[in-house]
Write a protein that binds this DNA or RNA. Structure first.
Length: 510
RNA sequence: GGCCCGUUCGUCUAUCGGCUAGGACACAAGAUUUUCAUUCUUGAAAGACGAGUUCGACUCUCGUACGGGCUACCA
């Protein structure tokens, strides 16, 4: 009997959501949808020191932009609400106490200063201090102190934490859906803090296990940085007696810097000119970070690119809609090694997506850009202009530069092209062409093209010569689509107007 | 330092013992073209190293090297 698939994405609101986090959310989402399960968004704000206002809203907006839908969680509600750990505060202490009563955990009264001192001493002696089975009996804990003394210390308001009593020399055998069987000896692990009295909040480990259990999470899909904590998490499930419903684990490979060593960071993006976050971000202190959305990426392309960093379908297909990803996704095709992030490939994906858009799909993307430039046109005109130019687009931010000539007559003429074309007989030739165009009734590109080509042939002119001179007049630069796409879009009146303008305003070059 | 994970073209990756090692990005050359692009064709480009198992190893095992992660009263 298979239980319902329930996965969670559980970010910490300590800043904008990193694209590595987006990929983790994506894989969780794909897995959930693939198996007809639920996707939960849980906010893990148990570190009051690092909490950043606005980060939670940013995370929710990012997931929405990416098309990653949440079934339960912060902002969406659900049967296990609340989904924000700070609102679940009172839950955790009872579980910490349960562990103490069962002998799996203990109170520790060491102050941070005392621990710093111990670490410094160990370092001076060339060793690493570990709070573990070797030293815990000598430290200020409920293992050594009498029951009365512990109660007295707590009663008088001494600060305390609850630590997990990591067993000595036990091999924990674990299974990971991506890495297979993993073993670790508990003697190499330390007694992690589970709960801190200072802010009456649990640490990640306790909150995570308790909430995953309570929220009936079936699969934990998270970054590889959590693999060293897995034995602790296994032991916590055992300590609580929850091993029968313990979720399965999958640890994802990390996203690495494009060059150099280490994992991808915001600085890499700043340095190499690509975003590391889905959306533009302004921190409460005024710092900003660029985002894929604002940099001109389409959400589908962004997601498609991310999906293939660490996973592949085993076929040669590269372009995937979200639904296709859902249908193709499986954890056993996730790779084990970290993946270097490649900004160039992100651009390529976006270009592919831009090239596949229709005029109707372009219209809503174009209209805000046109309005910002003071241009009011129909959706049809807006969409068509972009559609004609889409082969040249990489990012949505290219759209205005590439299409502006459709809406704005050239104010000046590109010098290089003018020097080449606006000389000799060409101005006279253009005047004659103006007459030819004026006589055309059906200004469709097919008809215009056949008429003009016939005229060129009759007059024994060079195609390039005529077209590029006309291009100079209508576009003002050596770029753009086929000239008859331009004439059709502009219409007869505007075409003739632009020809008249260049004849009136631009002196022939010699 | 200790523990854990990993290692195929510059990069992302395919290969689940039979390989002339495939695809994509980037790069180079060529073709198409009225400009700029697009597109197409072609090219160069890889199994970290050393042992072992095997008729046969990129694929399995061990060691070494290298890379990454963790080692907080952060997540």
């Amino acid at each position: 009997m298979k239980r319902e698939v329930r996965v969670r994405f559980a970010p910490s609101p300590t800043g904008p959501l990193h694209i590595g986090g987006v990929r983790t959310a994506l894989y969780n989402y794909l897995f959930a949808r693939r198996h007809g399960g639920k996707m939960i968004l849980r906010i893990e704000d148990t570190d009051s020191q690092r909490f950043v206002p606005g980060a939670e809203e940013y995370i929710i907006e990012s997931l929405k932009w990416c098309g990653i839908e949440i079934d339960e969680g912060v902002g969406f509600g659900g049967p296990h609400a609340p989904y924000r750990q700070s609102e679940r505060k009172e839950i955790y202490l009872q579980y910490a106490k349960q562990l103490i009563d069962a002998g799996w955990a203990y109170y520790a009264f060491d102050t941070p200063e005392e621990l710093d001192k111990l670490r410094a001493e160990a370092e001076a002696a060339g060793k690493t201090f570990a709070y573990n089975y070797e030293v815990r009996e000598q430290l200020t804990t409920s293992l050594r102190l009498s029951k009365e003394e512990v109660e007295e210390r707590i009663a008088r308001g001494d600060q305390w934490v609850v630590r997990f009593k990591m067993p000595e020399n036990e091999v924990v055998k674990m299974d990971d859906l991506i890495r297979g069987h993993v073993e670790m000896n508990t003697s190499t692990l330390d007694d992690k803090v589970l709960y801190k009295s200072a802010d009456a909040l649990p640490t990640y480990h306790l909150a995570n296990i308790v909430d995953d259990h309570l929220m009936e999470v079936s699969h934990v899909i998270r970054g590889e940085e959590w693999l060293p904590s897995l034995p602790l998490h296994y032991l916590l499930y055992r300590a609580f007696g929850w091993t029968d419903t313990q979720p399965e684990f999958a640890h994802l490979p990390l996203l690495l810097k494009p060059t150099g060593s280490g994992k991808l960071s915001k600085r890499d993006g700043d340095k190499m000119g690509f975003p590391v976050f889905p959306l533009f971000w302004t921190s409460p202190t005024g710092e900003t970070a660029r985002g894929y959305r604002e940099d001109g990426y389409l959400p589908g392309a962004f997601i498609n690119m991310l999906s293939l960093l660490g996973w592949n379908p085993g076929t040669e297909q590269e372009i995937f809609s979200m639904q296709e990803l859902i249908d193709a996704f499986s954890l056993d095709r996730v790779s084990k090694a970290g993946a270097r992030f490649q900004p160039d490939k992100a651009k390529w994906f976006n270009a592919q997506y831009m090239h596949s858009l229709t005029a109707e799909e372009f219209a809503p993307l174009m209209q805000p850009i046109l309005k910002a430039n003071g241009i009011e046109v129909s959706d049809e005109r807006a969409g068509k202009a972009a559609e004609i130019m889409k082969e040249r687009m990489t990012l949505t931010t290219d759209m205005w530069d590439l299409t502006s000539f459709f809406f704005v007559a050239p104010a000046e003429y590109e010098e290089k092209l003018a020097k080449k074309q606006w000389k000799g007989d060409n101005p006279t030739m253009l005047k004659e062409l103006r007459g030819v165009l004026e006589a055309i009734d059906d200004f469709s590109k097919e008809n215009t093209e056949s008429v003009v080509r016939a005229w060129i042939e009759k007059r024994e002119l060079g195609l390039g010569q005529v077209m590029n001179t006309l291009r100079l007049a209508l576009v003002g630069a050596g770029k753009g689509p086929g000239m008859f796409d331009v004439t059709e879009f502009l219409g007869k009146e505007e075409t003739l107007k632009r020809i008249d303008a260049i004849i009136a305003n631009l002196k022939p070059m010699e």
